[in-house]
Simulated scan of single mutants.
Amino acid sequence: MTGRLLPPGRYFYEDIDTGDVIETAALTVTTDHIDRFADLTGDRFEIHMSEEGAARHGFPKRVAHGLLILSLVDGLKNQTEAQFAAVASLGWEWKFAAPVLPGDAIKARMTVTAKRETKRADRGILTIAFDVVNQDAKTVQSGINTLMVLRSHS
């Protein structure tokens, strides 16, 4: 594992080594994010929708939906200056480690943990480990994304 932090650019399968890292910018989660996600999904569980509901479950404030944070992290991945030459996400294995509250700033560190070729000569598969932290550097979510990327000769 090389562990190099990738500078800005577009990275094809051949450009990437196991251990390479991309870090995202931070994003502050707001109640507007939570409300809009609830509107889109219909998930209106009380910890997400009101301070009182959150308090009934032992939280100091409303709690962002876990899947909202995963979605925001995927968006942060796609906005970084260092980009995988992605074709499609093939799957996620994800864990919710701590609540994300309005006002928390999240960011992700993505580390390539494996590469494999496909039957198609123009594509390869990356396994990417995510560590999502808040403004206090506490891990709030983590997991694995399997990502199909283009090969440079395609």
Score class of each variant (00 low, 15 high):
Lys95Val: 10
Thr113Gly: 13
Val132Phe: 02
Leu70Asn: 12
Arg123His: 07
Glu117Trp: 01
Ile69Asn: 02
Lys77Gly: 05
Glu117Pro: 09
Glu93Val: 14
Ala129Ile: 04
Lys95Asn: 14
Phe45Ser: 10
Glu52Thr: 13
Ile106Ser: 05
Asp131Asn: 10
Phe130Arg: 01
Leu90Lys: 15
Glu81Gly: 11
Asp43Met: 09
His57Lys: 15
Leu72Gly: 03
Pro102Arg: 05
Leu72Ile: 08
Thr118Ser: 13
Val100Asn: 07
Arg56Thr: 09
Trp94Val: 15
Gly42Leu: 00
Lys95Trp: 03
Asp74Glu: 15
Ser71Val: 07
Glu51Val: 14
Arg116Ala: 10
Pro102Asn: 07
Val63His: 00
Arg44Met: 07
Pro99Tyr: 04
Leu90Met: 13
Arg123Ile: 02
Gly58His: 13
Thr127Ala: 13
Glu117Thr: 15
Lys61Met: 12
Gly75Ala: 12
Ala82Glu: 03
Ala88Leu: 11
Ile47Thr: 10
Gly53Leu: 04
Leu72Ser: 04
Pro102Cys: 07
Phe96Leu: 14
Phe45Gly: 12
Ile47Arg: 05
Glu51Arg: 15
Gly58Met: 05
Asp74Tyr: 02
Arg62Ser: 12
Ser71Met: 04
Lys107Asn: 08
Asp122Leu: 02
Ala129Asn: 06
Ala88Lys: 13
Glu46His: 13
Lys115Arg: 11
Gly124Met: 02
Ile106Pro: 06
Ile47Cys: 08
Ala108Gly: 09
Leu126Ser: 07
Asn78Asp: 11
Gly42Ile: 00
Lys77Glu: 01
Ile125Val: 15
